[in-house]
Design a protein around this nucleic acid. Sequence first.
DNA 1: TACCAGGTAAAAA
DNA 2: TTTTTACATGGT
Length: 269
Amino acid sequence: MANFSPEPTIETDVLREAVRIDGKPCILEARQIKKTPATIEVSSSSGNTTKTRELAEWMLFIDLNLLPFYHMAKGHKILGLIAKELYGVRALRTASLFEMMVIAITEQQISLTAAYRIRDRVVQRFGEKIDGLSVFPTTESLSKASERELRSCGLSKRKAEYIRGTAQQVSDGSLDVDKLATLSDDDFRETLIKIRGFGPWSANYILVRGLGRVDCVPTDDLAVRSIVGKYLGDGKRMSEAQVLNAIEPFAPFRGLAVFYLLAHDRLSI
DNA sequence: TACCAGGTAAAAA
DNA sequence: TTTTTACATGGT
């Protein structure tokens, strides 16, 4: 299965990424050797094999049981075929919630290709390098970044403020991301939206991509509205209400279902 | 060249 | 309260 560079969060059975374990940058390598239930082989340059495995299993979403999703998909003409074709594919998650929050901010409004370039510059500039790769920057390094430095990576003035503000809140303890990650979908949305820089789109995007909440969908997302229209509608981009209606049969796996549509679309070009 | 792209906060009405 | 606007980069 392909890994789509520079976006590492699409379906893959191999992962190689610079991560931080016990505060120390290291290279994490993982390979999936069985699809359902998922089994992986893991190694890292960190000495901590337990934490290495925990992190790899989190990022590769190993605890997700795909079988109930496939059982549901079988009853649907289009999704059933796609699920069969992409059997075993699972969405990857970022190493941390903070990382996903920063990614969400960078991806607001602009095209993904533009967002990837900007993110890459931020990671190159503020993340520690190891073996040719860069670890995602720490909250401390981004909290200390000047607005000018962040803007020089291509971020707007607003986005620079959002990222720095978020990093500062996490860094000084006023925002507890570990606690945030344990909240229910609804409580997470309610809490996150109070933080400057995060709206409804970001809340749902982070839930499904960063935390693996498989029923969450940013229904106001342009790409989601287009892909659902393409596969489940008349080919044209849907309204948010039309998307909600069209994906209703996929509950409680609506987010995973939309992920499969997006993944199928990319793979079939 | 102009416009759109996986939004959001703040200004204006 | 609701509507409109500014914003950054990259592709077409």
